[in-house]
Amino acid sequence: MPAPTYPMETQRLLVRPFADRDLKDLIALYAIPEVLRYLYVGPRSDEEITKSLGERRSKTALDAEGDKLILAVEEKATGRLVGEIILVWLSAVHRSAEAGFIIHPTCQGQGFAGEAIRPLLAFGFEEMGFHRIIGRCDGRNTASARVMAKLGMRREAHLLENEFIKGEWTDELVFALLDREWTAPRP
């Protein structure tokens, strides 16, 4: 299988594998209640985040169905970790994947999420040959929904109260992009 070339560079960002130097920023990111609000995970100890950093460091290639790329998003100008992106290989038969992102609240609203995820979508469609890449978010997460729409993903579903997370029923929005839509001219 093809592997991404790291770092994936954009105008303002480096998308790269996680490194030990990211631990402090990762602990700080996952300590922010606003970051955790729409995630499946709740607060975690520093030890749990340290362990998860080790797991993230090994998620740098998609070799088989079920594999995940989990990559750090670094701001070039400052060298700081501003978030993470993920690409999960869902099905080899259906050539499908799921993309996701987390951006530090102080960096939201500046286009970092879309800028960071584009190279990952390009890798998925152009190198991996995926036919369809989806994105999902909590129905209340209007910022993530806007990012996916700006990426050209179409909203395909609004699932009402389909998951019980952190003591409450939550809605889920499902967005998707097909390979032919990725390669179509954009306005």
Results as ranks from 00 to 15, higher is better:
D179N: 13
I85S: 07
H94W: 05
L23D: 06
M8F: 05
S45H: 10
R57M: 15
R132A: 02
L173E: 08
F175C: 05
C107Q: 12
D20A: 15
A72F: 07
E181Y: 03
L90G: 00
A143F: 04
A157E: 03
L13D: 06
T183V: 12
A99W: 10
L90V: 07
R21H: 13
G167C: 10
K68Q: 13
L69G: 13
A77E: 13
L151R: 06
L87C: 02
T106C: 11
E75L: 04
I85M: 07
T106Y: 11
H131M: 05
A61N: 14
A19N: 07
D67A: 14
R155A: 06
L177A: 11
A31H: 12
L90A: 11
Y30C: 06
A19Y: 05
W169F: 12
R37L: 12
D25G: 09
E75Q: 08
I134C: 11
E65H: 00
Q110A: 09
R155D: 03
F130H: 10
P119M: 08
R146S: 13
H158C: 13
Q11D: 14
L160V: 07
R140E: 15
Y38L: 10
V15C: 04
V15T: 01
V73N: 05
L23T: 02
P185N: 00
S58D: 14
G111S: 10
